[in-house]
Design a protein around this nucleic acid. Sequence first.
DNA 1: AATTTTGTGATTTTT
DNA 2: TCACAAAATT
Length: 796
Amino acid sequence: MSINFKTLLNKEQYLAATSDAKYLRIIAGAGTGKTRTLTYRLSYLLTRGDMYPSQIVAITFTNKAANEMKERTLKILQDNNLNIMGTPTLSTFHSFCLRFLRKELPFYKKEFTRDFSIADETDQKDYFKRVVDKMHLTVDAKVLKAVVSYISGLKTKGIRPIDIDDDKNLFSKKIGFSIKDFYAEYQDQLLQANCVDFDDLLIFTRDILKENPEVRKNWSSKYKAFMIDEFQDTNDLQYELVKLFMNNETELSVVGDPDQTIYTWRGANHSIITDKLAKDFKTLETITLYNNYRSTQAILDKANMLIKHNKNREEKSLKAASGDNGNKVDLIRSESFKQDADNIAHKIEYFHSVNKVDYSDIAVIMRSNFQSRIFEQTFTKSRIPYILYDATAFYERFEVKCGLSFMRLLVNTSDSVSFERCIANPPLGIGDKTLEKIEDYCYSNRISEMEFCLTKLDSEEIKLSSKQKAGLVNLINAYKNCQINLSKADTPAKFEQAIQTYFVDVGLFRFIQDMDEKEARTTYGDNEHNRENNLKELLVDFKEFIERAMLDTTSENEPTLVDYLINISLTSASDTEEEKGKDAVNVMTAHVSKGLEFPIVFITGMLDGVFPSSHAINEGNLASIEEERRLFYVAITRAKKYLAVTTYTHDRFGDGYAIPSMFLKEIGFDVAKMTFGDFQVKNSYNPYSRYGNNSYYNQRPKSAPISSYMYPSDSDYGSDEKINLTPSKMIIASKPNNKQIIDTNVKYEVGDKIAHASFGIGTVIAVEGNKLTVKFEDEAQGIKKLIAGFKAFRKI
DNA sequence: AATTTTGTGATTTTT
DNA sequence: TCACAAAATT
């Protein structure tokens, strides 16, 4: 049996999936079946038979996308009765580099051990604060914020402290101290803590590959093909990395859509896909997918209308393959953000009860996370189940972070930020002053804070009150006890038990329970044991990880706490895999929505200063607005059958009068004609003024009845309008057992006939060791080189 | 005097 | 939810 690519894909998709071009660029507009093409391309490469699965790398934007592609590809293979030996690597750039560094970092940067931790955003802030202290600087919050964002800007570009010329640096002059020294001190702090941040994962990988030709040679020969998804959001550093991991033999295929570049603030550079790639790889072949299978023409019309306003782009417009115009796109207007949420809830209920639409087929997309709160409240009140794709992910929550800090301390004693968190929550009576003393002592004696506690607590070198000392003694006893328990643990339950005992012993559980109680008294008490439950959830999550790791037969190593901590540090908002069967409305930001699709989509809060964001408006340049426009474009193109955009007349604090987003006018909702009582909305955005002349910052009518600010309504939510919907269900792939035994016993000779999964019947025309040259009966396939022993083909 | 608790006001997007 | 300043506690 073989995969019949031709019947499963359209012409362009087929050409893209089965192309043998060494360098391939696939330009795929929204909804053109990009993921489908990519998974089939991966299946093609896996079964072509000239490389091992382990020699193929597919890079995706999120871990979730990676898992999804893995499942879908395995399903394709399974459906076609194909087995492969081993698995390809599917991961993000960051995870891929992490894998590299876990092997190489301790050898090339000797200060690090294999058990280094990864600093997330919160940790980074703490490290930056330490730098301020260490350098005896007095900087206010604003300046510090500017410094942090300046450094993170440098880091995404791959610029290190040594690359900075301080004399020429204008930023250093502006802030009055050396940014180079500050940045260098930050890196030193991380190094002391045996810790790397997200950007370091990429920078260190690049440096090691660049500085050590033998490492590069070794790693680049490991892989024969790279596939990169969402290539329009790749930055220069990531592109440099790809090239470093490639050699002259390596195949490269990339997929992207320049109109969906939404991460320029993180260095994404879409000229890589539009120009650079063709310059670096002369034989680059390009295939464009233009048939949109996702949305109705009414929705695509809006998307096309919108994106036309971007000057810096190549003309391209989306066409519905179905030819179906579909339902018109609605504009829903309300008086306030509360009413907006009510209206959306109302409409969702209508779809659910009248049109029998599953909640899970509905998405609410917003610009920023702060907009989510009202939907949580409203949906809870209206008993609409929902899943929030939260940026402050589970692992970022205070109580979870505390728990994780205690866990991190177990594997990395140098992690000083975790140490700080541990002695502050629950408080041990050690504050800034005492901590500073301990840190100074540790710094001059070149030991970590935890080592100090474990070995020097009785040495009287630092005066501690009896209470402080008792607290630390209790901590180290629990700590040592936990380490013993962990080393003895051989079942998931015992792993969990060890950590739970630890949490109880250090007083974390008691502390978190007290917090819950206090909060229950001050708030409306809708979340009585929230924090405690989250902490318990962390334990369960850990247990499940160990369980999965123990069942995973592909890994040779025993699962450890280190693996768990490393694994979760790269898990992001879009990765939160809620219970799959749960029928719930999906609430998320436009960024998170990238790559997803839903039959029904509401885009909420189309207001000046919300979408486009006030930041983009304040930056006052065309590029920022164009990026917001692309972001809105991404949001619109998520919708399959029905789309509504919403706006309201009062801003989110309820005290000012909001101006509708400029984008509404651009998609044909003529806001210029809509009056706000005594003034008319003109242009909401003026690229030459810092605060756009008509933005809501400086134009608020002082007093007028709210109702006079209502728009004339053209969208009758809840009416008997007929919506034609055919809810489509995502097919969830089951996990096949992919452990296969390579069949090396079969010997091939010239003249042997073989049957290949993708190419059909062929004849062996040459044998060289385990490499076969096969001529296929299908003229289009021609002659291919295959490796004997692959399950992709067999002797007949 | 050092530390912890309490109140207040502001918040882009994420690997 | 989080940071920061002021008040309360040890």
